[in-house]
Amino acid sequence: MRAKHRHALPGFGLTLGVCLAYLGLIVLLPLAALAWKSASLGAAEFWAIVTAPRALAAYRVTFGCAALAGLVNLVFGPLLAWVLVRYRFPGRAFVDALIDLPFALPTAVAGITLTALYASNGPLGRVLEAHGWKIAYTPGGITVALVFVSLPFLVRSVQPVLEHLEPDVEEAAATLGAGRLTTLWRVVLPTLWPAILSGFALAFARALGEYGSVIFIAGNMPMVSEIAPLLITAKLDQYDYAGATAIALVLLAGSFATLLALNLLQLFTVRRRSAGAA
């Protein structure tokens, strides 16, 4: 690789300089400030803040609702991808485009709209509450918002894999007399798992940090429906900068671990595939 490029292409110094300067100024320096600020706390104090009951409850809500939303999308994301790739129906292009709506629609707009729909006097909330299902102002509402926000990640990571799926395996399974359901379950689904998992990890990481769409519908009750990002702003508003940064670091660690797991997973599957090919 190196030998091939060494003599040829210009721009190494320029692009390296631009990247490092920009990355340093915009990302690294500010994040260093975060570490600097929480370093003003002693280890014991830091531990006391990040393991306070209210903080633990906030992680539980944040991680729990993000995982639940991820699970809902784990079912519906691949289903939507399957329907979009394999079926032909009127309006397919429209639905395909619409999948990215949560990505393009500002989160605050999503937040007030979902709240208006699911509140007990909203069109959906009224029906659900008649059946004893309270969504808005409960962790259920947070989950609904997170399902909305993280849906595109699952669909978009499974879709390309399905598009490039070789037909011969399915055909072989059919020739061998497997029923369609068996083929889907035993043959198609296993090839999708890496894509599904990486979509899930992305969706989960995104949902952990989500703020705009959640605060309107959450109810924001400490211990019950308060998410970690809100706890950060609440601490800030009490001039507790160090406390805010401590919670922020925990949240960051959570998303990093998720993305790291994703990268490892991808490395692993690439290696397994190339091993299988060899």
Partner: peptide, 10 residues
Amino acid sequence: AVSPVIAGLI
């Protein structure tokens, strides 16, 4: 991976 709230905070 960074929550928008943290992005503002930094």
